[in-house]
């Protein structure tokens, strides 16, 4: 699918070295709208919305944001830790505002799955339904994320 000029501008900001070192699209050759449409279709199959996934991620991050140097066990199943890094980053969709730099690591003990996300991941999923392109460092497959967060 051909990208619109607006999508091209957003994609340019998602390239490696612009906002983050590795960028947001990895080796994915699909247009942004194709990436998003494919993930939205998968979410439908999984019976979850991007908003509720982002809300759940945000809740885990909020619960561990100001915990000092320790993993927190939540709901007796999730080991969660958030590392805060100095500074903030803009969203590649360029709608103003800056987002904290942090990485949350969650291990679902029951499922034996560990996933990592940034504050920017939460924002991109919530506001843009964008889980990042295939091969991107912080791409999380929707199916894996749903299993990690809800099972």
């Amino acid at each position: 699918m051909k990208e619109t000029p607006k999508e091209k501008r957003i994609r340019a900001r998602m390239m490696p070295g612009v906002i983050t070192l590795a960028g947001f699209v990895g080796k994915d050759k699909r247009s942004l709208s194709e990436i998003i449409a494919a993930d939205e279709k998968e979410l439908e199959t999984l019976g979850r919305t991007a908003e509720e996934i982002a809300q759940r991620m945000q809740a885990f991050t909020d619960a561990t944001f100001d915990v000092f140097d320790a993993r927190t066990v939540i709901e007796e199943n999730y080991e969660v830790e958030t590392e805060v890094i100095r500074g903030k980053l803009p969203c590649p969709y360029a709608h103003g505002g800056l987002i904290r730099k942090l990485v949350t690591t969650l291990t679902n003990r029951r499922q034996n799955i560990t996933v990592k996300w940034t504050a920017l991941n939460i924002h991109l999923i919530k506001e843009h339904h964008f889980f990042e392109g295939k091969g991107s460092s912080f791409r999380i497959e929707p199916a894996v994320l749903v299993k990690a967060l809800f099972d």
Partner: peptide
Amino acid sequence: SPGMINAVTKALMENGIPKEKIYYDSFG
């Protein structure tokens, strides 16, 4: 980190140090 600043501030205040005398540079 914010976690360290929060935990330490709480402990210092419990030890009687006034909040206004606790200065910090938080990574968050």
